[in-house]
């Protein structure tokens, strides 16, 4: 197997807060292990407060109290050590240059009172080791590749539309040709028409510069269109992982199955069934499997013990006793909801 671009082992990141002596611990990321291959877009899906944002904050080394990393390791291929063994100066060196970030709101990286040119200068210039005119040559060529006119460099962020700003944020994140890009819901705030173009741009840029990427969004249809592999998180845990296509055709975990089955699409009027209950409070997660209170397949075992993320013979990974116990006998079917037990959803 080739070397992974990012390998995360048993990562645990909790929010530990104290208000006037009341201690609270929110287990936002609890024992997550995954690896991102080179040149791959690894998608992370999940609903709000499933831990996906915390996860990427952690792998981007952007943690601040009350968030704390309590254990685990994060290794990038371009680093000889664990991410958390680096000091602040070394971290600043790798940011943008090796590891860059596309945020949900482009305003998070673009300073509203500075022209786009200055933002490029602030972020990318120190990393490129080029003279000023050479640097702007590179920037101009990069912008052209992304079909952005170099004239936007003299604009202020507020003069651009939302979609345009997001393209600038992408240009900014990729101008140093980083090995690794972390994208946090980069298209969520955009309108559908713009969203499609921005996704195409991300895909194209990623292929062109050959970086690896973690792409986080709650929107499964976006994942279907961009991620090579998909990890689904629920209540701070990674519960299923596999090639995106396979997850859409044959989701294994009951939760993923529900997510895929409940997606409305044009041309499909079959009744969509809703899941009962709600995601747990991560300050007091349920015992055993965190999905068991909502799961139609839950057994006593699920209530007591937490299933490990196990690798199946197909190479996919899933954290569910019901699936892992009978991997060979489970009928492989393309039809998404034929399993009798799921009629009860």
């Amino acid at each position: 197997m080739e070397e992974a671009a990012l390998s995360v082992q048993n990562l645990r990141a909790y929010y530990v807060t104290g208000h006037f002596g009341m201690q609270r611990e929110v287990r936002a990321v609890d024992d997550v292990s995954l690896s991102v291959r080179k040149n791959e877009i690894y998608g992370i899906a999940g609903e709000s407060s499933c831990g996906k944002s915390t996860f990427i904050k952690t792998v981007a080394a952007a943690i601040r109290p009350p968030l704390r990393v309590l254990g685990g390791s994060i290794k990038y291929s371009f680093l000889d050590r664990d991410l958390y063994d680096l000091d602040e100066r070394k971290l600043a060196d790798i940011r943008w240059n090796h590891l860059s970030f596309i945020p949900q709101g482009s305003m998070n990286v673009l300073n509203p009172v500075r022209r786009i040119r200055e933002s490029f200068q602030d972020f990318a210039f120190p990393h490129m080791g080029l003279g000023r005119s050479e640097f702007f040559d590179v920037v101009n060529r990069h912008l052209e590749r992304l079909q952005l006119s170099p004239s936007i460099l003299s604009a202020f962020p507020h003069e651009l539309s939302g979609g345009m700003r997001q393209r600038v944020a992408i240009a900014l994140a990729t101008v140093c040709r980083p090995e690794f890009i972390i994208a946090d819901e980069p298209t969520t705030a955009l309108d559908v028409v713009v969203q499609k173009d921005v996704l195409a741009l991300i895909l194209e840029t990623q292929r062109e510069i050959g970086s690896s990427m973690i792409f986080v969004t709650h929107d499964l249809t976006v994942h279907a269109n961009i991620s090579n592999r998909l990890g689904i998180m629920y209540a701070g845990r990674l519960i299923e992982e596999g090639p995106t296509r396979e997850i859409f055709h044959d989701p294994l975990h009951p939760y993923s199955r529900h997510l895929v089955a409940s997606l409305p699409r044009i041309g499909d009027l079959t009744p969509k069934i809703a899941l009962t209950g709600a995601p747990p409070n991560l300050a007091q997660p349920p015992s055993g499997c965190r999905f068991h209170p909502r799961c139609p397949l839950a057994t006593d075992l699920c209530r007591q013990a937490s299933p490990e993320l196990t690798t199946l013979s197909s190479g996919r990974r899933v954290a569910c006793y019901a699936v892992a116990s009978a991997p060979a006998t489970r009928p492989m079917t393309n039809d998404r909801m034929t399993n009798d037990k799921f009629k009860s959803f």
């Binding site: 609903e47 709000s48 709650h218 499964l220 939760y255 529900h258 997510l259 409940s262 409305p264 009744p271 969509k272 069934i273 809703a274 899941l275 709600a278 995601p279 909502r294």
Partner: peptide, 11 residues
């Protein structure tokens, strides 16, 4: 509303 709860509202 989260994906797993959305359909309950729509329905």
């Amino acid at each position: 509303v989260d994906a797993s709860l959305r359909m309950s509202i729509v329905n």
